[in-house]
Computed example of a mutant assay.
Amino acid sequence: MRVDGTVASDDEGGRSGGNMDFGPAWARVKRRLRAELGEDVFASWFARLELEGVTAGTARLTVPTRFLKSWIESHYLDRVLGTFKAEAEEIGRIEVGVRGTAAPVRPAAVGAPKAGPASGPLARLHATGTPTPVAAVATPSEHRSADAGGDLSGTPLDARLTFASFVIGRSNALAHAAAERVARHQGEGALYNPLYLHAGVGLGKTHLLHGIGHAAREAGRRVIYLTADRFMYGFVNALKTQSALAYKERLRGIDLLILDDVQFIQGKSIQAEFGHTINALIDAGRQVVVASDRPPTELEALDERVRSRLGGGLVVEITALDEALRVATYVARAITANGRDLEGAVNRLLAHATLTGTAVTMETAESA
């Protein structure tokens, strides 16, 4: 039986339908978890936990990221099951899944080619193989800091996502230029601090963040790239191991902090620490780069002072792909066999446009 109603609110979300409506029971479960665990814990781990459906006594719950799924399964699964059973005795098992929007696939146009010709129309459009993670922290001193208490290893950088593999168009040219300036800056202080990039899913903001990380590390700077979930995990883990002070001091001792998906930062204490960290780094002249799916003014969950600080640097929006990038995306996706096939497809497209006197558009790309 599928439960497919609507979500009433963040703390009373639950989809319901079919012969039995589990929505009210799920709303009571979330209220009990909030009361028993406290506002900070609930906001950090359960605010985005939703009931997708109930089938044969198994309740399927979903969260937006794999990290939240893993954390809930490791620390709270039995508690959630027990609370749900107390509210609905039909529930005998719980499964936690990741909602489809949590791991979007980047378009090939802003993806990362691994190999291909050094020049020509395909220099940035070759298909890539399996991503090769690169450690986000590479210097021995940073490794020692991570081992001393708390988790400061950061999220690995993807070796494919560099400035060289980023396809530039009108929609992302300003963001790319600002990202390169920040990454390669060698003078005193920081540029555009913080640099705040925002865009919808799949438009290349995470690609630029990884590109900044790679370029800054190559220049010898101490860099940490963190997703919002990783930031929350590090802080909560430091609290559990009673190393929060040392963790915060180490985090504030780096040269460049890159934070992705800040719209997911939850919990009053974690949000407060996020604000303190941003302020400390900026005041010390350290560079901060932040990305989100919306501008700072729309991050309603964050304190107004934090939103103001995030908006006090350079805020750049990456807009929807322009025609040229859409064509590049289509060609790169359609031809996946090898680089020469892709080169031939582009040559055919250019020849078709030249001989017929038509512009290169999605329609001509599909017909050529």
Rank of each mutant, 00 (worst) to 15 (best):
R2F: 13
V3W: 09
V3R: 09
V3A: 12
V7C: 10
D11L: 08
G13P: 04
M20G: 04
D21Y: 07
F22D: 10
G23Q: 11
G23Y: 05
W26F: 15
R28T: 14
R31Y: 08
R31S: 15
A35S: 15
E36F: 04
E39K: 12
E39P: 02
F42D: 05
S44K: 03
R48W: 08
G53D: 15
T55H: 12
V63G: 08
T65E: 03
T65A: 02
T65D: 07
K69H: 06
S70L: 10
S70Q: 15
W71G: 00
I72P: 00
F84W: 05
A86C: 04
A86I: 02
A88C: 12
I91H: 04
R93W: 01
I94Q: 02
E95Y: 00
V96S: 00
G100N: 14
A102S: 14
A102N: 09
V105R: 15
R106Q: 13
P107N: 11
G111R: 06
A112V: 04
P113Q: 05
K114A: 13
P117D: 06
A118Y: 06
A118E: 14
G120Y: 14
L122E: 02
L122W: 00
A123M: 11
T128F: 13
T128D: 13
G129R: 13
T130V: 11
T130F: 07
T132K: 13
S141L: 14
S141N: 09
D147C: 06
D147H: 09
D147K: 14
D151F: 12
G154C: 05
L157A: 00
F166R: 03
G169V: 06
G169C: 08
Q186S: 15
E188V: 12
L197N: 02
L197R: 01
L197Q: 01
A199K: 04
K205R: 13
K205L: 10
L208D: 04
L209K: 01
L209R: 05
A215K: 02
I224M: 08
Y225N: 13
A228M: 05
F231D: 04
R252H: 09
I258P: 07
Q263R: 10
S269E: 08
A272V: 08
A280H: 09
L281D: 00
R286G: 06
V290K: 01
L302R: 03
D303V: 02
D303K: 10
S308F: 04
S308R: 01
V315F: 01
E317M: 07
L321D: 13
D322G: 06
D322K: 05
E323F: 03
R326S: 07
V327W: 10
V331Q: 12
N338V: 01
L342A: 07
E343H: 05
G344K: 03
N347D: 12
L350D: 03
T354L: 11
L355G: 03
T356Q: 14
A359T: 09
V360Y: 03
T361R: 09
T361M: 08
E363Q: 09
T364Q: 06
